[in-house]
């Protein structure tokens, strides 16, 4: 197949190094492609989650180490598209797609997708959508991990005798954040850079910056 000669438009005037805030069609479609792809990943992860979590049952908060996968679409989409809202859009869409495929969590998963996306978004907001390197990726991993921990802990594991703060709440949060930083932040940025090296991101700032 020949190179893509005709590239998508960018109507807005753009400062070098700082993409415009307005979403181009290609931003929307590629963010959606990531959302759909991770929706399928969510679906598969939901299937194996129970099996993978079982051996971790000796210390229940440890299962949080598997949570990072759910935080990937938001961080990856934001690192790639670099527009405010990319994380929320891709993350929510991923959750919606996993719901359509049959999710054991029902419609709540969409709320999760949105909150997890907002969590990732916060990391990029804190760096004012100017930096998309390791520091931002790790920061977004932390904020995304915190967002889902807060939701999980308040919905399913409220601090109580059954779920004491020191023995459950804290380690659960720590494990989620570690998992999120490694999978969403580090692996996410590696994924975006690997995509950039294939030339597939030529329409994006993420595909043109030398790394």
């Amino acid at each position: 197949m020949a190179e893509q000669a005709v590239r998508p438009s960018s109507v807005d005037a753009v400062e070098p190094g700082r993409p415009g805030v307005r979403w181009r069609t290609v931003d929307i479609v590629v963010a959606a492609v990531l959302g759909v792809a991770f929706g399928v990943v969510f679906w598969a992860w939901n299937l194996v989650f129970g099996v993978l979590a079982a051996p971790l049952d000796f210390f229940p908060p440890l299962s949080a180490i598997l949570n990072g996968v759910y935080l990937m679409p938001g961080v990856v989409a934001a690192l790639l598209v670099r527009k405010p809202g990319a994380a929320v859009f891709a993350s929510t869409l991923a959750a919606a797609v996993s719901l359509l495929l049959g999710s054991p969590y029902g419609l709540v998963i969409v709320v999760y997708g949105m909150v997890q996306g907002l969590g990732g978004e916060l990391g990029f907001l804190l760096t004012r959508y100017r930096h998309f390197g390791w520091a931002t990726a790790v920061l977004a991993g932390v904020t995304a991990g915190l967002s889902t921990s807060i939701l999980d802990l308040s919905l399913y594991y409220p601090v109580s005798q059954e779920y004491p703060f020191w023995a459950f709440t804290l380690p659960y949060t720590v494990f989620t954040v570690i998992s999120s930083v490694l999978l969403a932040g580090v692996l996410g940025l590696l994924l975006v850079r690997a995509l950039a090296r294939t030339g597939a991101l030529s329409s994006f700032a993420a595909g043109r910056t030398r790394v």
Binding site: A5, V6, R7, P8, S9, S10, V14, P19, S202, S203, A205, R208
Partner: peptide, 12 residues
């Protein structure tokens, strides 16, 4: 052709 189509990416 792309230039004619007016959709050549201004960033690239």
């Amino acid at each position: 052709l792309a230039a004619l189509a007016g959709i050549l990416d201004a960033e690239g």
